[in-house]
Design a protein around this nucleic acid. Sequence first.
DNA 1: CGGAATCCAAGATGATACTG
DNA 2: CAGTATCATCTTGGATTCCG
Lengths: 125, 125
Amino acid sequence: MSSKLSERLRRGDVFEPDCPSRTILRNVTSRWGVLVLVALRTQTHRFSELRRKIAGVSEKMLAQTLQALEADGFVRREALPVIPPHVEYSLTPAGHEVSRRVEELADWIEQSLPSILQARKAVRS
Amino acid sequence: MSSKLSERLRRGDVFEPDCPSRTILRNVTSRWGVLVLVALRTQTHRFSELRRKIAGVSEKMLAQTLQALEADGFVRREALPVIPPHVEYSLTPAGHEVSRRVEELADWIEQSLPSILQARKAVRS
DNA sequence: CGGAATCCAAGATGATACTG
DNA sequence: CAGTATCATCTTGGATTCCG
């Protein structure tokens, strides 16, 4: 480590327990955050569409995840003032940047799944 | 969706709740899994070295995380039969592949942190 | 439809003590 | 040193209910 603490904090350092980058990273890599980011890559989605696409997520967790990603500036929320309500979720430019990297990770795992499962040991996590 | 369910499961699909790829993804993107993978990129590490490098992790969680990543075939554990014990952790070839993608994500967040924090809203997750 | 609010179960995390 | 075991706690996650 050649850099001083102040420098590392300015630039962000996930190895520092109090660095905000850890929080961002947690939101992005959260159980549903990953899937939301990947799901929104192809197109904007309504709340209920996301719920269907991301099988297994509850309303509560999806709403919570979307709020966190919106707060971090990765997701844009547009509510059309109509009845019944109509809300569109899409990626911001920054969101597009992260989601690209998240998807690369997810894609690699999906494609490598067969060999991963073979190499997998019997030990349970 | 043009592919049938059977095909999607063969190849891995993180949007399928029962697909093993979701479990792998969770282990890899877990709170400490991400940091372990990035930490091991530069070099092999002993248990205590990892604990120091990944500030904030408890012994229990580090051990648990390492076991999960080892079970998935991403981390190799080598215990030298000496007293006191000496254990080395390193990445397998597959582990190197995932960690590369994980690091790209972490790096982007670290470097973009300033602009992310500016765009961040006051809403709390 | 798209949530917010509430309650509760389950899992993740941590501090501490102990051991080969 | 490198863990394991135990217990306490904090956070996640889900089901349900209600509302504009």
